[in-house]
Nucleic acid binder design. Structure first.
Lengths: 208, 208
DNA sequence: CCAGAATGCGAGTGTTTGCTCACATTGACA
DNA sequence: TGTCAATGTGAGCAAACACTCGCATTCTGG
């Protein structure tokens, strides 16, 4: 249906030199995206910004799509890692605190390269890159569903799966929306309080 | 920062004939987008699909951007209209019913040209088209904040503005997410029940 | 019925840009 | 130190595609 192109690397970098090249190119891709926007992202521009020749770029990325795909993958992995790494610790806290911690984690994750995040979500077509997003989304979903199931007796929910779906979508959207449209709200403690209230009241947990 | 191009029509269609052309072209744009994706959207392809020459197309749309901009504008207006037109009626219902009605309206709005909706959200860069989106979002936001304020004494909220922000973002996200990633959920009454629960519990309204 | 405006046409043009390839340089390993 | 693989180079090619322009057709108002 949609034009689908290969985004797997053409060649594996074997020496340190070439690994550095790959990193430089990816960093340059991010810089060009932020500075010139998606329209201004040409392979020549990226190569120039990276201080590398187009040829070298094409040694490791089969096409422009692959460049963007790799960048998106890295970015969403970084964001997800920021949340998942702490989720284990959070699991041990009392529910009220756990909820707040998760929300604050989500906000913190959105503070990772925010300009890049904005460009990626606003401008970059997600053709053929949704698989990864869905995958990470599913991981989040399962983790939250797990947390809810583990404490099921403390909560007023019927189906942990549906509850997780609703909560993940809501918290993500509130954070994302605030980050893009009203960044000042993210510093407003009332927003965090209300987001916590949304979750705790839904879960039937006593508010502190 | 980003490349910004004019998207205002080059010429106003004055006769019925040309108004029909404009409509045909827009409809063709939607068809091409759905069938070939954003990458496959070329002005020549649109003209051909519309059974019109490229020249005619350029009489009314100064460039390809304008084509897409007009389509997006129409689509979001259609979706917003579906919600706003009913919102007045809803305002008179008892709160529990009003909440459910709004949620069902949101779902119904997402059933308007769903394939087009998917392509527009997944593939089309929103460069220079966010103003309209923010504007309509702000309208929704104000309407909901108004509803909340009007019934403030029945509700357990402190700031109707923040509450509206949270609720609009959440309901939109739950619906959108379900529509794109798990359409079968939209037919699951439990999802709607739980979404209602999320809102009513947050607002401190007794559940039925 | 006619003149001028509005609309429609589509082959062709100019530019942009993704990507290649023939060659140069550097590193690994014996 | 020599050899081959790995890596780097960038001028230039080829294709795609947005957009123009000179002309044909249709409509409108008098």
């Amino acid at each position: 249906m949609y034009r689908q192109v290969k985004t797997t690397p053409r060649k594996r970098p074997r020496q340190d030199r070439s690994r550095a090249t790959v990193d430089t190119v990816l960093a340059a891709t991010a810089r060009v995206l932020v500075k010139r926007g998606f329209d201004g992202l040409t392979t020549n521009a990226v190569a120039e910004a990276a201080g590398v020749s187009v040829g070298s770029l094409y040694q490791y990325f089969p096409n422009k799509e692959a460049l963007v795909a790799a960048l998106i993958e890295k970015h969403v992995e970084d964001m997800n890692a920021a949340i998942l790494s702490e989720l284990v610790r959070v699991a041990k806290l009392p529910i009220g605190e756990a909820v707040r911690a998760v929300i604050e984690l989500t906000i913190k994750a959105h503070a990772i390269e925010p300009e890049l995040h904005r460009v990626l979500t606003e401008q970059v077509p997600r053709v053929g890159r949704l698989a990864k997003l869905r995958e990470l989304d599913a991981i989040c979903h399962r983790m939250v569903a797990g947390l809810l199931t583990a404490r099921r007796d403390e909560l007023a929910i019927t189906d942990p799966d549906i509850a997780a779906f609703i909560l993940v979508a809501s918290i993500e959207a509130i954070t994302h929306h605030a980050a893009l449209f009203a960044p000042e709200r993210l510093r407003d403690p009332r927003l965090i309080d209300e987001a916590c209230a949304l979750v705790t009241r839904y879960l039937g947990v006593a508010e502190n």
